[in-house]
Design a protein around this nucleic acid. Structure first.
Lengths: 214, 214
DNA sequence: CGATAATTTGACCGATTGGTAAAACATTAC
DNA sequence: GTAATGTTTTACCAATCGGTCAAATTATCG
C-alpha cells in the first residue's frame, strides 16, 4: 500500500524528515516573499527541487505546509519576549530584548516577513493564536513593566504600546529591508544598519524611559 | 471604433472618471489585503460592481491598476515628511510629524497596507522610486535633524534610524492592526489605541531625544 | 534473495487565472 | 434624426491553479 502519505506510520523515515525539511525551507522562501495567496505549490516544489505530486505526498495541501511553517515561526518568534524576566533589572532586560529582537530580524528575515505577510493580510490562519497565547504572554509581560514603573524604576508609560513599538522598530529592519537598503544605499552605510539601529534604539528607549545606567 | 479603451481621447468622459475611481477604490481594498500576486482581476471587478471585461476596458492590465494606485499612495504618503520644516523648532516638528503619521495610519490603513505589501514582497514595482525620490527626501530631512543635533537642540542620534523608527511605530498601527486589536481586545482598550499610541510615542521621542518643552 | 512498504513519476482533472474579440448597446455631437 | 464615438456584454482563449490517480520505481527488512 502507498496510502500512508507520510502520516500513517508512527515512526518517521529518514527520507521523510529530510524531504519535509527541504519543503519547509523552500516554502519559507516562497511564502515569505509572496504571501499565502500569491504563492503556488509549483513554486515551492521547484524551489525544493521536486515534482509537485511528490511534494503533495508529504503535505496534503498548501495550507498544511503554511500552517506548519507558521506554527514553528510563531513559537520561536516569541522566545525573546518569553525570556523577559520580571526579576531582572529594567535596563538589562529592555536592552537585551531590543538586541535579541534585532538579531532575529537580521538572522531570520524570512521568518519575520512570513509573519508580517500573515498579519498584514488579516491573519486568517492565526487569529486564535493571537487572541489566545500571544495576548496572554503580552498581558503577563505588560504587568511586569507596569510594576517597574510603579516602583519608580522606569518612567510611567503604557506597557502595551511600549511592546508594540519595540516590535515595530526591530521587525522593520527585516520586513522593510528593501526600503531601508534603498535609503541607506550610499557606500557602506547600509552594511552597518543593524549596529546603527541597535545603538539608536537602545539610546532612544533608555532615555525615553528615563532609565539611568548603573 | 471602440478601440480607444479610455486612453486615445484627450478629454476624459464623466463616465470614465467615475468608473476609474470606482475601480481604484475597489482595487485598493483587494490589493491592500491580498498583495499584488494574491489579488485577481475578478475580485477587483466584483468589488467595483462591474464585469471583468468592462474593468479591462478602463485599465488594460492588472499591473496598470496597481501602478496607478501605488503612484498615488506613494505621493500622499510622503506628505508629512515633506512638511517637516527645517526652520520650525524640533519639539513641534517631531511631535506633529508623529501625530500626522499616526493619523494617516488611522484614517488610511488600506493605503498603508498596500505600501507595506509592496515593500514586503521586495518592492518589484517601485524600486526606482525608493532609490530616487524617497532617498533624496530622507537625505534632505536627515540633514535637518543632524543640524538640530549639532545646535544642541536635540540629543545626537542617527537621523536615518530616527526616521525609520517613526515610520515603523506609526505604520505598525495600520499594518499590524489585527495583532494590535487582538492583544488589546479586552473591553475598550482597543478603541483608544490611537490616542494611547500618540501619548506613548510623543513621550518616548520627547524624552528619548532629550527635548524639554518650552 | 523476495516481499512488502515507501517514494516518485507522468498523465490528468475541473476550476480559476489574466486577457481578448466582436458584437450589442448607450451616449454624444451635429 | 443620424452618425460617430464611447461603453458594456457574451462568449471565449491558453495558461496556470490546487490537487488526484495509478502505475512505476526505490528502499527496507527478514
Amino acid at each position: 500500500m502507498a496510502i500512508p502519505r507520510a502520516a500513517k506510520t508512527q515512526r518517521r523515515t529518514r527520507i521523510q524528515e529530510e524531504k519535509e525539511e527541504r519543503i519547509l525551507e523552500a516554502a519559507l522562501d516562497v511564502f515569505s516573499s509572496s504571501g499565502f495567496r500569491g504563492s503556488t505549490i509549483d513554486q515551492i516544489a521547484e524551489a525544493a527541487g521536486m515534482s509537485k505530486p511528490n511534494l503533495l505526498y508529504y503535505f496534503r495541501t498548501k495550507e498544511a505546509i503554511h500552517r506548519q511553517l507558521i506554527d514553528r515561526v510563531l513559537f520561536t518568534w516569541l522566545e525573546p519576549l518569553r525570556a523577559f524576566d520580571a526579576e531582572g533589572n529594567p535596563e538589562a532586560e529592555i536592552r537585551s530584548y531590543i538586541r535579541r529582537k534585532l538579531e532575529m530580524a537580521r538572522d531570520f528575515p524570512r521568518e519575520s516577513r512570513l509573519f508580517a505577510n500573515e498579519i498584514l493580510q488579516g491573519a486568517p490562519h492565526i487569529e486564535d493564536e493571537l487572541k489566545g497565547p500571544l495576548k496572554e504572554l503580552v498581558d503577563e509581560k505588560a504587568e511586569v513593566i507596569r510594576a517597574w514603573a510603579r516602583a519608580g524604576k522606569i518612567a510611567g508609560c503604557d506597557p502595551y504600546h511600549l511592546i508594540f513599538s519595540i516590535w515595530a522598530t526591530t521587525q522593520h529592519y527585516a520586513d522593510f529591508d528593501v526600503q531601508v537598503r534603498a535609503v541607506l544605499s550610499q557606500e557602506s552605510a547600509g552594511d552597518r544598519r543593524f549596529e546603527d539601529a541597535a545603538r539608536f534604539l537602545e539610546q532612544l528607549y533608555m532615555d525615553g524611559l528615563r532609565i539611568r545606567a548603573g
